[in-house]
């Protein structure tokens, strides 16, 4: 059969998704799936590179890449400054031609006592302009915060390529 270039690329993408949707697996393709430490200023920089690579892998255009890397930078900085360090997990999600990147940032810090307030622009206890959480939320499509006082904070954020 004739194998056009686009046909081939479509098949390749579908195959990526397919291996993961095999029985027992989730619907999450994982060509890139890595957890990075966020414990130093240097880590804040290297995390950006890793997130950039993942967005390229997922086929995001430049502006979307920038949005996701910026959101990652905000979240990682939050974990570093407020959470006393933590980790950032990057996953490339695949639903056929629909691709996405999920960032999961965890810290074991003091937690956020008032999440609504923390999402309000201008509210901050550390450096930055207090746009960290709220801003990151605006740059991503899905955004959840799991936090409790003295039990740390986990922020999960996803951006898709088709919205």
């Amino acid at each position: 059969m004739t194998l056009y270039d686009e046909e081939f690329s479509a098949r390749r993408r579908l195959t990526l998704r397919g291996h993961a949707s095999a029985p027992g697996g989730t619907r999450t393709a994982q060509p890139v799936h890595a957890t990075h430490a966020v414990r130093s200023e240097q880590d804040l920089l290297s995390v950006r590179h890793a997130v950039r690579a993942a967005t390229v892998e997922a086929g995001f255009a430049l502006v979307d890449q920038t949005r996701i890397v910026t959101a990652a930078s905000e979240l990682a900085r939050n974990a570093y400054v407020h959470g006393g360090g933590g980790s950032l997990t990057i996953e490339v999600l695949g639903h056929g031609p629909r691709r996405g990147v999920r960032l999961t940032v965890r810290d074991q810090g003091p937690g956020i006592p008032d999440v609504d307030k923390a999402l309000t622009d201008g509210w901050t206890t550390g450096s930055g302009l207090g746009h960290g959480l709220g801003g990151a939320r605006r740059l991503m499509h899905e955004f959840t915060i799991d936090t409790a006082v003295d039990r740390g904070t986990t922020v999960t954020a996803i951006r898709w390529n088709d919205r």
């Binding site: 194998l3 046909e7 397919g18 029985p23």
Partner: peptide
């Protein structure tokens, strides 16, 4: 029952065939 989904070559044959028809 899992052969088609988990065997790479078989899987891609079926998908190629279907994509070809879709196009």
């Amino acid at each position: 029952h899992r052969l088609v989904v988990s065997q790479g070559e078989l899987r891609s044959c079926v998908m190629e065939l279907s994509l070809h028809r879709a196009r």
